[in-house]
Amino acid sequence: MVKTKSSSIIGKIIIYALLILLAFLMLVPFAWMLSASVKYNKDVFSFPMKWIPDEFIWENYSTIWTRIPLLTFILNTFKLTIIVTVLQVLTSSFAAYAFSKLRFKGRNALFLGYIGTIAVPWQAYMVPQFMMMREFHLNNTHLAIICLQAFSAFGVFLMRQFYEGIPDELCEAARIDGLSEYGIYRRIMLPLSLPAISTLVIFTFVTTWNDFLGPLIYLNSTDLKTVQLGLRMFITQYSSDYNLIMAASVVSLIPVLIVFLALQKYFVQGVASSGLKG
């Protein structure tokens, strides 16, 4: 008895030691970023380092807006991210409903086609996709980014997996009550699939907000660029203004942090119930 108790205490100590190490590894870069963003540039790399500077240089956060059109970049990214996320969630959940709850000819073949393309990396067809968009005169427009991000097979797959877990009897009962398929989708499936939708919103929001290669290929004009491109531009142009780079980085992280924290309680549930575990 005594032996198990002491060994369980040792176990606890090991677990918490690991947790502290984990939090340290995960958070230190962010803490360092925050700390450097309110320092004088000359103090960023001072050793031994001070986590909390003697003097907070809040001007760093006002200077960055004058060095590059950061506000334009942020608004562009918001616009793209919101449109892509709304389109993605609507069209995916719509299609997923048919794949999961309706019977029609060619359902399995069509779904297999969808799944097949998940395995084809985007990077393998980005070149012909770019040339096609150029033919449509969509290069250097936001529409190009929207078109290539909004209709992913992944969203359909994720939503369908979740709908599979909702009993068919529920839809049958609604049909007998005279609800149309569109009514069932809107009144029953959408409200029930909140965890899956949250998961998809997080994924889509994060992917679009953080996308780099897509905007790099398609957006050339400065007034169209996204935060990621802008930040990269900033880093290249002012490569030794470390404090400003860190301040701009902090600003670029905030929107994602807000969305993530707002939706994260649904997240593990969403991943679990959408059967991403295969």
């Binding site: 995960m26 962010f30 960023v44 790399f45 860190m246 994602v256 942090l257």
Partner: peptide, 26 residues
């Protein structure tokens, strides 16, 4: 809290966290 902390690098902007890494590992 610990779950959120471990997931955060994944959602954080790549350009921003790469900038920190480049400085940390300068």
């Amino acid at each position: 809290f610990f779950r959120t902390v471990s997931f955060f690098p994944y959602v954080a902007s790549l350009v921003a966290v790469a900038a920190v890494w480049n400085m940390l590992f300068n």
